[in-house]
């Protein structure tokens, strides 16, 4: 899975995945997130503007990472969800009650 990483400062980083996050490639996202986790960023922003779909496998990786970050007082934020498919899914499972989702 293709993704772009923009370091804002030593505390914050933005990661922008592209395309579908599904069970054929969600391990790539997990590896990427774990790499950022090891670098001790406190705020990780996932820019979803170029993500077309995500499945439960991808979602599992995000929730795991959210939990790990929270344990060391960090925060995961999902931003710029453009896809209606993803909006409907997040709404159905009330993901906003667990992970901060910003417009």
């Amino acid at each position: 899975m293709e993704s772009k990483t923009d370091v804002i400062n030593s505390e914050q980083v933005v990661i922008s995945p592209v395309g579908n996050i599904d069970f054929s490639n969600s391990q790539d996202l997990k590896d990427k997130l774990l790499e950022l986790f090891k670098k001790d960023y406190k705020k990780v922003i996932l820019d979803f503007s170029e993500v077309e779909s995500i499945d439960s496998s991808g979602l599992g990786k995000l929730l795991l990472f959210h939990k790990k970050l929270k344990e060391k007082d960090g925060k995961l934020i999902i931003r710029n969800v453009e896809s209606d498919y993803i909006k409907n899914m997040f709404e159905m499972i009330h993901l906003n009650k667990v992970i901060t989702i910003e417009e």
């Binding site: 499945d55 439960s56 496998s57 979602l59 599992g60 990786k61 929730l63 795991l64 939990k67 899914m89 159905m92 499972i93 009330h94 993901l95 009650k97 667990v98």
Partner: peptide, 18 residues
């Protein structure tokens, strides 16, 4: 439980809900 500890196992519950 969407926020449960497991990395997996949400698909079937999401299907039941949807």
């Amino acid at each position: 439980d969407i926020s449960g500890d497991s990395e997996r196992g949400r698909g079937i519950m999401m299907t039941a809900r949807g």
